[in-house]
């Protein structure tokens, strides 16, 4: 499968990674090569085969629906690039 630059631009947008216009052709070419490699999977007969969900058969564990943690606002914010008054700060999102 060949990926065009418009598709490459769309994927970059979905991944929230800025890619300059002049980098798109090279990126599209790389995607095409990798997807070409992946296409081999089409040779495998997978009819009736379940997609793997868990590599070791196990039921997801459950626990009581109770608060087990909390009151650590300072620790949670300690690594934020911009934190103010107990909140993460980001550029304005609402006009």
């Amino acid at each position: 499968m060949s990926i065009d630059t418009a598709t490459a631009a769309k994927v970059a947008k979905l991944a929230r990674i800025q890619v300059d216009e002049d980098q798109l052709p090279a990126l599209a070419e790389e995607f095409s090569a990798i997807l070409g490699f992946i296409e081999q999977l089409n040779e495998v007969d997978v009819d009736g085969v379940e997609p793997m969900v868990s590599v070791t058969p196990m039921r997801l564990k459950r626990r009581e629906d109770v608060v087990t943690d909390g009151n650590q606002a300072e620790a949670v914010l300690a690594n934020a690039p911009d934190a103010r008054e107990g909140f993460f700060a980001v550029p304005k999102v609402v006009e």
Partner: peptide, 25 residues
């Protein structure tokens, strides 16, 4: 970005689910 592509609408089955079936095998 490759991961984003194989999980995107229209390709999820063709790539991601197929790969997980192959993984079962």
């Amino acid at each position: 970005m490759v991961g984003t592509y194989v999980l995107s609408a229209g390709f999820y089955d063709a790539y991601y689910n197929r790969a997980r079936r192959v993984r079962t095998l």
